[in-house]
Design a protein around this nucleic acid. Structure first.
Length: 374
DNA sequence: CGTGTTTGACCTGCGC
DNA sequence: GCGCAGGTCAAACACG
């Protein structure tokens, strides 16, 4: 126990101190629940797998959405309710982009744990909208309600006597929410995905020196959970497992920036902090999407060079514009000030030139032109 | 004071 | 039934 503490402490300091420079991250999706696969990824663009589609969407968003601009593009908040099927895209990408291609080495070897749950992209259970997805998430309950709403009420009374721990237990063993996990090579334990998470538990995992952290979406009525743990085989790999579907848009701060943005802005430290930089000693380590993008850029670049072949780079592809903005400190009005000003990563300026080079590989030419034109 | 983390205790599922 | 491991709760605590 104390060892873990020490480890954690050391990791904490280590992460906070070293995270800036050398972390690239390789994100790869691995699994999802075999029963239903309606998970709605908060940042659709994050996992949008189809490059063309992603670009098209990016274009569409740029044309159509000006109020929230990049934020919307990133989070698709504006079309949260009409998200066609983010996970479907994602899954397609899984099939078209072998994990090994994205992250060659150890990552793929750790997948087996989840390989069983990899679903087929064409699974009909994939709903075509986030609302449907949410419904699909709840359909577990619905199904069971069909079987015994009366029972439910009866047992509800019984359950009241018990701890509120499991009000749902009667229906089934335990609700299996659609789940999927992705592995991220990062020093950061908790990758920020735009939603607010509250840590509700931490457990030591057998055969792993690293504890597993349990997070729950802070939005009321949103039961999405996520587990974060480090791979025992490769401590540099963080395995994040999402369970459930958000039934609400991605939170956005009044200033138009993500609530999720990590500690880079003090305004997000306390009540505004998303992803827990705030209380409890700030032991969790978040990587903002911009940061992720930054690393993803590097990763992509590396991959690109290695393979001499443009692999689909789905997850952050249409998120690249803000990266370029961040890197160049441009003042594109389309994007929130927070993204323009925020030194999201200490290495951002240092890597400016390199990022621009990367952007050439990744960004549509239009994207690169925009800042200049304006 | 509000929000979030920590952490020990408790519960549940599962294999034997 | 028992034990183990995973998952969750909730009080205590930390922070802004």
């Amino acid at each position: 126990m104390e060892e873990e503490k020490k480890k954690k402490d050391s990791r904490t300091t280590e992460n906070s101190s070293t995270f800036s420079n050398n972390q690239m991250m390789t994100t790869m999706m691995m699994m999802m629940n075999q029963e239903s696969c309606s998970f709605s990824m908060p940042n659709r663009s994050l996992f949008n797998s189809s490059c063309q589609e992603a670009e098209a969407e990016a274009d569409d968003h740029q044309k159509s959405s000006t109020s929230l601009g990049f934020i919307d593009n990133m989070l698709n908040v504006d079309d949260f309710n009409i998200i066609s099927n983010p996970f479907d895209d994602f899954l397609q990408n899984i099939t078209t982009t072998p994990a090994a291609a994205l992250a060659p080495s150890p990552v793929s070897t750790t997948v087996p744990e989840y390989s069983e749950v990899v679903n087929t992209p064409n699974s009909e259970s994939m709903s075509s909208s986030s609302t449907e997805a949410a419904a699909a998430i709840n359909n577990n309950d619905d199904d069971h309600k069909k079987n015994g709403e009366e029972e439910e009420q009866e047992q509800e009374n019984q359950d009241k006597t018990k701890k509120q721990l499991k009000p749902k237990k009667k229906n089934q063993k335990r609700q299996r929410e659609p789940r999927f996990a992705f592995m991220t090579k990062s020093e950061i334990d908790h990758l920020d995905d735009g939603y607010r998470w509250r840590k509700y538990g931490q457990k030591a995992v057998k055969n792993s020196p690293f504890p597993r952290s349990y997070y729950r979406c802070t939005s009321t009525a949103c039961g999405v959970k996520k587990r974060v743990e480090r791979s025992s085989e490769d401590p540099s790999i963080v395995v994040t497992t999402y369970e459930g579907t958000h039934i609400h848009p991605c939170p956005i701060t009044p200033r138009g920036s993500f609530g999720m943005l990590p500690a880079e802005t003090s305004t997000l430290g306390g009540g505004g902090s998303i992803g827990g930089g705030g209380g409890g000693g700030g032991a969790s380590h978040f990587m903002s999407i911009p940061q992720m993008l930054h690393y993803q850029q590097q990763t992509q670049h590396t991959i690109h060079n290695q393979q001499q072949q443009p692999q689909p780079q789905p997850y952050f592809r249409n998120l690249t514009p803000p990266m370029s903005l961040i890197g160049t400190s441009t003042t594109n009005p389309t994007f929130p000030p927070s993204f323009q000003e925020r030194p999201f990563c200490p290495s951002a300026s240092i890597n400016l030139s390199r990022d621009q080079g990367l952007l050439q590989d990744m960004l549509p030419s239009q994207m690169l032109k925009d800042p200049k034109e304006e």
